[in-house]
Simulated assay, not measured.
Amino acid sequence: MVASLSLPRIMRVGPGAADELGDVMTGLGLSRPLLVTDAFLVGTGAAERLTAALHKAGLHPRLFSDTVPDPTTDSLAPGLAALHEHRADSVIGFGGGSPMDSAKALALLGVRGGHMRDYKAPRVNLGPALPVIAVPTTAGSGSEATQVTVITDSATDEKMLCLGPAFQPVAAVVDVELTMSMPPRLTADTGIDALTHAVEAYVSRKANPFTDSLALAAIGTIGRQLRRAYADGSDARAREAMMLAATQAGIAFSNSSVALVHGMSRPIGAHFHVAHGLSNAMLFPAVTAFSVHAAPGRYADCARALGAAAGTDPEDVAAGKLVDALHGLCQDLEVPSPRAHGIDREAWTRLTPLMAEQALGSGSPANNPVVPTAGQIEELYARIYA
């Protein structure tokens, strides 16, 4: 099998890396970026500091801060207007997964036009698009290193997976200092998101030797560091390790694929406005238990990397220990069930068939070790509700 690989052309990784953003932009010959972020980072002053640094480097940025969690086609419209008004030659995604998803979508729409539904999977988008420079502030989505964006169709509530090199950032600036203010809930949710990326990349039907090594490295780091970062947000070593692991996991799944957890997670986010990492966490143990028998060797490798199983454990025993470890991790990180999160049972039950249809339609479940039927997905949704 020939693996088709795509990575950022430039990566600056380490404490203080954000200070080099102007140099990165100048080196790429770019001067008029649209800085896409959110109101929270404006409120903390982080967006203003980044804008000032870009001005100091001789660039001409414009700030767009009206992104929303789980961006929608409607939320892209004012950003697209700002992009054209500014005559932007590039887009900087500054924030968590939502600002970066928005930045990637705007970079494509700004050149190609049309509607995001024109670009959803299974279409592979080759471009053209404006250059995207990604500056993450959370250790989870890995979007700084992926050729993926996710946008919800405002008309249908479908969370659309959009793929291809057109969405690959040309540069990623990964600075752990930007993550130090993450609260515990966000630390937990984004950390489990990164772990899901790594495990699904490893067990995916599209896994390859390049992504395997990155996935296992990320799993090991997250197993050692996530609880530490959750318990003590000022633990700089744990934060830096989680930031690197999230990027590694992002590269892994972008060049392999995600699978059933992500396929089922997106509809939960679209219909019930649950943060992406949290909806992954709600699903992760149950979906792994459903899938583990089909690839016990691969899941056993994940368990050993996570520190949940010994090298002497038989494959099926080690794989079972992974399921137990995921239950334990979600308990330690206080991951709520959909019911505990406040989702109405009647609405959940009524929307389950549609969510199953949308999960299958995304294509991600086809990469799972067990390719589920719609009925099996509905059963999993029912199982995880409470």
Rank of each mutant, 00 (worst) to 15 (best):
G79V: 03
G45F: 14
I92L: 09
S98W: 00
S75Y: 12
A107R: 00
L41P: 03
P99I: 08
G45H: 14
G79D: 09
M11H: 09
P71Q: 00
V36H: 14
A46R: 14
H115I: 01
L106W: 03
V24M: 12
D38S: 12
L80H: 05
L106H: 02
G22Y: 02
I10A: 07
G95M: 06
T67M: 12
E85W: 05
S98K: 08
A17E: 02
A105R: 03
G113D: 10
S102Q: 04
L106N: 04
P78F: 14
L109P: 10
H86Q: 15
G45I: 14
L41G: 04
S143N: 11
R117T: 15
S141H: 04
R112N: 13
L109A: 06
A88V: 06
D101M: 02
L109V: 05
R49H: 13
I10K: 08
V36P: 10
R12A: 12
L63G: 01
D70K: 08
H86M: 10
T72P: 10
A52N: 13
A47C: 07
G110A: 08
P61L: 11
G142D: 04
H115C: 11
T146I: 08
D38Y: 02
R32E: 09
P128D: 03
G22N: 09
G110K: 02
L28F: 08
G97Y: 09
L130A: 07
H115G: 03
P122K: 06
L80P: 05
L34E: 05
V148W: 13
V36S: 14
K120P: 02
D89Y: 03
M116Q: 01
A46I: 03
V132I: 11
I133R: 05
E20P: 00
L63T: 01
G16A: 11
A134Q: 02
M25W: 04
G29E: 08
G43T: 05
P78V: 13
K104Y: 05
P69W: 10
L63I: 01
G95C: 04
H55C: 07
L28I: 02
R117V: 15
D19Y: 09
V132T: 06
D38L: 12
P128N: 03
S143M: 13
S102D: 08
H115W: 08
L21W: 09
I10S: 07
L80K: 02
L109Q: 04
V111L: 04
G16W: 13
K104Q: 02
I133G: 00
A46T: 12
V42A: 11
A88P: 09
G58F: 07
A81H: 12
L34K: 08
M100T: 06
P122C: 08
R32I: 00
V132C: 07
L109H: 10
P128G: 05
L30R: 06
F64E: 02
V148M: 09
R117Y: 12
S102H: 13
G45W: 14
P136E: 03
L130Y: 03
S65E: 12
R49Y: 01
P71C: 03
E85M: 10
V24C: 11
K56W: 00
P136K: 04
V13L: 15
D101I: 02
G140P: 07
F94Q: 05
V148N: 11
P15Q: 07
V135A: 03
L21I: 15
L21K: 07
G29R: 13
D118V: 01
H115V: 10
A77Y: 06
L34S: 10
M100R: 09
K104W: 05
M11P: 01
D38E: 15
H115K: 15
G58Q: 07
P131R: 06
G27C: 10
G29Q: 13
P131C: 12
